[in-house]
C-alpha cells in the first residue's frame, strides 16, 4: 500500500538556489507537523506536492499519484489552506466556498450544501453571507479552512494556519484541526513555525533544515524513549562537571551557560551525580526530570545550542 506522501530524491531548484535537496522518505502519519526555520523548505515542499513547482530532480507522489505527471489526480485528493491572506473579493463566503467545491468536482447542488456545512463547521455559519473582504483575519483563516475542507479531501495541507490569530482564535483553529484529524478520514500536514501548534496537533514531525530532512519522528515514541532525561543547573566549573558525568556513561548536552541536559544509563543513581559534583567542587542548584519536548527534538535536529543560537529566535515554543 503506497504511503500518503512518498519522496524519492526530490530536489527543487529556483535558479541558483536549491530549495529542496534530495528528499526521500515515505510519510503516512495521520497528522504530520512540518517544522523548520524560515527558508528551510517547508512551504516549497507543500507547493511542490501541489504541483506549483516542478521538481528539478527526483519525484514525489501523493497517494501514489506522481505530482509531475498526474498532478490533477493528486490535487483532487488534497485540500490546501495557504499561508498568506488568500480570498476572492466581491464574493460572499458561501459563494466562495461553493465555487471552490465545484472546481474540485462537486456538482453544484452538493457543492452548495457542503459549503454551508463547511462554514458552519468552522464557526462561520452566521456570517456565511457576508463578503469575504469584510471578514476579520481570524474569520478569513477559518474561511480558508472551510474551502480546503469543502470537497472532502483525503489530505489536508495547512500552511501556518494560526498565523496572526489572537489567543482565542488560535485555540479555536487548533481545536478545529484536532477535530478534523480525529475524524479519521483525513491526513493532516501542518506546516508551522510555532512548535506549540505542532506539538498539540501532530503525532509525527518532519523537520527540514536547509532544504534537507533533518529529522522525521513520532513524537510519542520520542517522548517514551527519553524517560530518564534530566535537566540540571550547575554552579561552578560546568565544563569539568560535564566531562566527569560523561565518564559515568551519561549522554549530556549544554542547554545554556549553567544548564545541562542528560540522559542517564539505567543503572546509574542520582546520588552519583551529587558525588561527582562534590568532587568537582560544583553545586547542583536545580535538578528535574523532564520529557524531551518538541523544542528539544527540534533543536537537536538543528544542531543548535538551545540558548546560545540566534536562529532560536525564529521559532517560538
Amino acid at each position: 500500500m503506497p504511503g500518503v506522501i512518498e519522496l524519492e530524491g526530490l530536489s527543487v531548484r529556483f535558479g541558483k538556489v536549491e530549495a529542496l535537496r534530495n528528499l526521500s522518505g515515505s510519510f503516512s502519519g495521520r497528522a504530520i507537523g512540518l517544522l523548520g526555520p524560515n527558508g528551510a523548505g517547508k512551504t516549497t515542499l507543500i507547493h511542490t506536492l501541489l504541483g506549483f513547482h516542478r521538481p528539478s530532480a527526483g519525484s514525489a507522489r501523493v497517494f501514489g499519484h506522481d505530482v509531475r505527471r498526474n498532478d490533477k489526480a493528486a490535487r483532487a485528493l488534497i485540500g490546501y489552506m495557504p499561508e498568506r491572506d488568500s480570498f476572492i473579493a466581491g464574493m460572499s463566503a458561501v459563494r466562495f466556498v461553493r465555487m471552490m467545491g465545484e472546481l474540485s468536482g462537486l456538482p453544484p447542488a452538493q457543492a452548495l450544501e457542503r459549503a454551508h456545512e463547511a462554514l458552519f463547521y468552522v464557526g462561520l455559519g452566521e456570517a456565511r453571507y457576508r463578503m469575504l473582504e469584510t471578514y476579520s483575519l481570524g474569520m478569513k483563516q477559518r474561511a480558508k479552512l472551510a474551502q480546503a475542507l469543502v470537497h472532502g479531501p483525503k489530505l489536508l495541507f495547512l500552511d501556518e494556519p494560526t498565523n496572526g490569530l489572537d489567543p482565542p482564535g488560535r485555540e479555536r483553529m487548533i481545536k478545529l484541526i484536532k477535530n478534523v484529524r480525529d475524524a479519521g478520514d483525513v491526513h493532516v500536514i501542518l506546516s508551522s513555525h510555532l512548535l506549540r501548534d505542532v506539538e498539540e496537533c501532530c503525532e509525527e514531525v518532519l523537520i527540514l533544515k536547509d532544504g534537507k530532512i533533518a529529522r522525521y519522528c513520532n513524537l510519542e515514541e520520542e517522548r517514551r524513549a527519553n524517560r530518564k532525561f534530566l535537566e540540571l543547573e550547575i554552579a561552578g566549573d560546568v565544563d569539568a562537571y560535564v566531562a566527569a558525568v560523561r565518564t559515568l556513561g551519561c549522554e549530556s548536552a549544554r542547554a545554556g551557560k549553567r544548564r545541562i541536559k542528560m540522559v542517564l544509563p539505567p543503572e546509574l543513581r542520582i546520588r552519583e551525580l551529587y558525588r561527582l559534583a562534590a568532587e568537582q567542587r560544583a553545586q547542583i542548584r536545580h535538578l528535574d526530570y523532564k520529557k524531551d519536548s518538541l523544542q528539544d527534538i527540534f533543536l537537536k535536529a538543528m544542531d543548535l545550542d538551545p540558548l546560545g543560537d540566534a536562529d532560536h529566535g525564529r521559532l517560538r515554543a
Binding site: M99, G105, Y121, N179
Partner: peptide, 26 residues
C-alpha cells in the same frame, strides 16, 4: 458533514467530469 452535527466527514457522492470543471469559472 451535516450542519447540525458540527463534525467533519468526507464527500461520498459523485464528481463532475474533469474536462468540464473550468466552465465553473465563466
Amino acid at each position: 458533514m451535516a450542519v447540525y452535527e458540527h463534525s467533519y466527514s468526507r464527500y461520498p457522492g459523485p464528481f463532475t467530469p474533469a474536462w468540464s470543471r473550468f466552465l465553473v469559472l465563466p
